[in-house]
Simulated scan of single mutants.
Amino acid sequence: MAEDLYEILGVSRRATEDEIRSAFRKQAKASHPDVNQGNAAAAERFKKITAANDILSDPEKRRQYDAGEIDAKGDPRRPQWSQQPTGGPRRGAQYTRGAGAGGAGGPGGPGSFDDFSFSDIFSDVFGSGGGMRRDGHGFATRGQDLRYSLEIDFLEAVLGAKKRVTLPDGGVLDLTVPEGVTDGQVLRLKGKGTPGSPGSEAGDALIEIKVRPHPEFRREGEDILLDLPITIDEAVLGGRVEVQTPSGRVQLTIPKGTSSGKTFRLKGKGVRPKGGAVGDQLVTVRIVMPTEIDDSLSYFFSEWRQKHSYDPGRK
Rank of each mutant, 00 (worst) to 15 (best):
D4H: 12
V243H: 14
G239I: 11
G160F: 15
V181P: 01
G221N: 09
G170E: 12
S112G: 14
L252V: 01
E60W: 10
S123K: 02
L297P: 02
E292D: 08
A235T: 07
Q94Y: 13
G268L: 05
G106K: 15
R77Y: 06
G98I: 13
F154N: 05
W81M: 08
G10V: 04
S31N: 14
I8A: 02
A40I: 07
V177F: 13
K163F: 04
G103T: 11
Q281P: 01
R249N: 12
A30L: 10
R25I: 14
R286L: 13
I8P: 04
V278K: 15
L9R: 00
Y310R: 07
T176G: 11
G268T: 13
L187H: 01
E303V: 11
D227T: 06
S123N: 11
D34P: 08
Q27G: 06
Y65W: 07
G143S: 12
W304Y: 09
I224G: 04
I232W: 06
G268M: 06
G279A: 12
D223H: 06
P168Y: 05
A40D: 14
P198E: 14
D18T: 05
D295R: 01
R90D: 12
E201V: 05
Y95H: 15
S128H: 08
A205Y: 00
I121R: 05
T245N: 12
Q80D: 10
G193C: 04
R305D: 12
A51L: 09
I49F: 00
S259M: 08
R62V: 07
L155S: 13
E292I: 06
T166P: 07
K26E: 13
E222W: 06
Y95A: 14
L146W: 05
G106V: 09
G268V: 08
F118W: 05
G313F: 03
R13P: 06
T253Q: 12
A104T: 11
A40F: 08
F113D: 15
G170N: 10
M289C: 07
R272G: 13
G238S: 10
A23H: 09
P215L: 02
S296A: 10
L173S: 10
V271I: 15
D4F: 09
S119T: 07
Q80W: 09
S302V: 07
F116V: 14
E156D: 15
N39D: 15
S123E: 08
R218A: 12
D4T: 09
N36H: 10
D124L: 00
V250D: 14
E220Y: 08
V211E: 02
D18I: 07
Y95S: 11
K274R: 13
R249I: 15
G88W: 03
S309H: 13
V165G: 10
T258N: 03
E208A: 09
K269D: 09
M289H: 13
S296R: 15
S200W: 05
G313E: 04
I230Q: 03
A52D: 06
S197F: 04
V158M: 00
V236R: 11
F126S: 01
G191F: 01
F217Q: 04
L159F: 10
M1P: 00
Q94N: 14
N36V: 08
N53T: 12
R219Q: 09
R14G: 03
F154D: 09
R13M: 15
